[in-house]
Structures are given as C-alpha cells and as structure tokens.
C-alpha cells in the first residue's frame, strides 16, 4: 500500500458516497446513467469473486464488500425507489456494444485461461469503458449538476491515482500488471475531456455545461 493507492481508493469511496448522498438528499437520480451504474455493479460482482477464495487483508475484504453492496444499492435506488426521476430518455447507450466486445477480449487476452481469471479480466476491461453511457448521456443533455460533476471527478481521479501507484510499484516493488495498466490508462483517458471542463468551469463556480 502506497500513498497513491490509498488516496485512489479513498477517492473511489468518496465518489460512491457522493452519488448515494446526491440521490438520497434530492430523492432523485436525474442526470445519472442507470446503464453505467449497472455496468459498475457487474464490474464489482465479477472482480471480487476472490472474496471466497483468498484472504488478503481486512481492508481489502471490507472495501470489496462495500463496493459490491453500494453498487447494488445504487442500482436499486435508480430502478426501483427513485425510478420516477430516472431520465431514461437520455440514457440510450446500448450496453451490448460494450459487454459483448469486452467479454470477447477477456477470453482472448488474459493472464490465465481459468474462469476466475477471465472474469477478473472482463471486469478490468469493462470498468475502463463503464463510464461511457454516463458521458454519452451528458453529451445528449449538454449539462450536469454540480454534485454529479464532483462525483465524476472523484471517480475519474481514482484510476488516475492508480496509474501513479503502478509507476511507484514498478520502480520499488518490481510489480507490473500489463492488463490493469493498459485498461487503467484507457479509463483515465476517457475522463480527460471531462477533467478539462471540470477544472475550467466547475472549480470556478460555474455549472458544467458542454459546448454545443
């Protein structure tokens, strides 16, 4: 555990808490892509199956359980409790266009051709593109609430911090996981346009609106 990894994990945790708070306080999931949230639940459910096969640390297990349970709660809130506020008309990204190619790639490019390893690889690849329905939705509506942009900034920063963690681990521990690094870079690159808008608009007190 190094400082980049720890801040990265805390940023990920903060993102999830921000999203849940936004929904709970406003009793609304307006502006949030339910499809991205379904993908995140799928990401956690397929990645953390090793909860049952290996124990790493109390921190590790606690975080895994937190991510799995909160992602399921988020999907429940969006599709059941606050369903009336869900903006389905703008959430039109086709999930099969992500899940099918990512599933195929996980079968072809993995560290080991075993069920758990393929599911882990699927999860890593899927996470890298899981935000696309959310970004697609924002490009259709042309704006985002400020709390939603804070959520997205924390969520995007988490993987960017993991990249620093991987650089650190490569130099000081000789650790290198090509699949995680490539997918993590792709994931971070997808956020760059948003990061730019966040820094130039939201941090200056303006609402995030996209150029037409």
């Amino acid at each position: 555990m190094n400082i980049f990894r720890l801040i990265g994990d805390m940023s990920h945790l903060l993102a999830i808490v921000l999203l849940l708070l936004k929904m709970w306080k406003t009793r609304s999931c307006a502006g949030i892509s339910g499809k991205s949230q379904i993908l995140f639940a799928l990401v956690f459910a397929t990645r953390y199956l090793d909860l049952f096969t290996a124990f790493i640390s109390a921190y590790n297990s606690t975080m895994k359980l937190f991510f799995i349970s909160t992602s399921l709660v988020t999907v429940y809130l969006m599709y059941f409790k606050f369903r009336a506020t869900y903006d389905a008309n703008h959430d039109t990204f086709r999930l099969e266009f992500l899940v099918v190619p990512v599933g195929g790639l996980a079968f072809l490019v993995n560290h080991n051709f075993s069920p758990l390893e393929i599911l882990w690889t699927f999860s890593i690849y899927l996470e890298s593109v899981a935000i696309l329905p959310q970004l697609f939705m924002m490009s259709k509506t042309g704006e985002a609430e400020t709390i939603t942009s804070h959520y997205l900034f924390a969520l995007g920063s988490y993987r960017a911090l993991y990249i620093l963690n991987w650089v650190f681990r490569y130099y000081f521990e000789g650790f290198f996981d090509l699949i995680a690094v490539v997918a993590g870079c792709v994931q971070t690159i997808l956020y760059c346009d948003f990061f730019y808008l966040y820094i130039t608009k939201v941090l200056k007190g303006k609402k995030l609106s996209l150029p037409a």
Binding site: I56, M63, D177
Partner: peptide
C-alpha cells in the same frame, strides 16, 4: 480456480 493469480489491488 487454482490458476487464479491473487490480486491485492481493488
């Protein structure tokens, strides 16, 4: 299952 390389990251 035994072929799974243990991952310590989240």
């Amino acid at each position: 299952l035994s072929n799974f390389v243990v991952k310590d990251e989240l």
